[in-house]
Design a protein around this nucleic acid. Structure first.
Lengths: 138, 138
DNA sequence: ATAAGAATAATACACATTATCATTCATTAA
DNA sequence: TTAATGAATGATAATGTGTATTATTCTTAT
């Protein structure tokens, strides 16, 4: 019944972790694949998927199951919230203090064993808003 | 530039709406398809997808982009939150007052034009917890 | 009744993710 | 050091969810 930190740090896993930690965005598996491939050109896409999943299960990284059709990954594992641009799909952190007490409230009002929560804002990012304003004045 | 309430209520759309309103769960498109097919055996899956999407755009229903690989649909359109069972994938409403003021906070601390938010709790539903307890005592 | 447009059903397609499996790599025990 | 064992990888096939296409059917207005 061990579920933590006994995974071997293969070169592939190390590079995946390093590349993920490098960026402040929240890349999809494919984007991670592209980043990693610059250093390990022969790595397989399956390996990236498999290891991202594994590291997320291990608590080493965070798997974001946000809106949109792709899952995203985050090297920062402490509780924080996100905002997603409905135009371009980009996901950013939102600077808003965590509210761990929500879990207790949810536990009180449901018959679930509550494990956690996530808040996802949606909106239009600055880039997309600017692009829109630009094409409107044309 | 109309985006509201001028869609024709075809028999298919009516049945989709009725079946969705009947359940308190948050079915996937495929589940809606199965429900609707009992009354309209010749309906196509594409029709279900197309119309769920259309009605969501229209604000008649809610499209939930929660964790897991499938989108879910909800006949209740006012702001409320959800909890998802990480075992079976089921999604239930959580009885927790809406916090619309979060949008303002998010707007203050980001350069997004904030449109809304959603809170998704995760946990283990009673059924799954009971099943687990049962097999543990065997 | 007829023409014009909208909606449907069937099907093909696209994309993200998972499964399979032969090969390679790492580790352990002689 | 070497043989054996199991884990991880890379290549590829398969699956599943959702979207696009298109010929046909249905509505509606005349």
């Amino acid at each position: 019944m061990q579920s933590q930190s006994d995974i071997r740090l293969t070169p592939q896993r190390q590079v995946i972790l390093e590349e993920l930690a490098k960026v402040k965005t929240h890349p999809t598996a494919n984007e991670v694949y592209d980043m990693v491939r610059k250093r390990l050109p022969r790595i397989g896409l399956g390996t990236v998927y498999r290891n991202l999943e594994l590291m997320a299960d291990n608590g080493m990284i965070l798997k974001l199951e946000v809106g949109g059709s792709q899952k995203r990954f985050d090297a920062t594992t402490d509780l924080h919230y996100h905002i997603r641009c409905t135009r371009c799909g980009k996901v950013d952190d939102i600077e808003l203090g965590a509210m761990p007490q929500l879990d207790q409230l949810a536990a009180d009002t449901s018959d679930y064993q509550v494990l956690g929560h996530h808040i996802e804002f949606s909106g239009i990012c600055k880039t997309c808003a600017d692009n829109q304003a630009e094409s409107a004045t044309n």
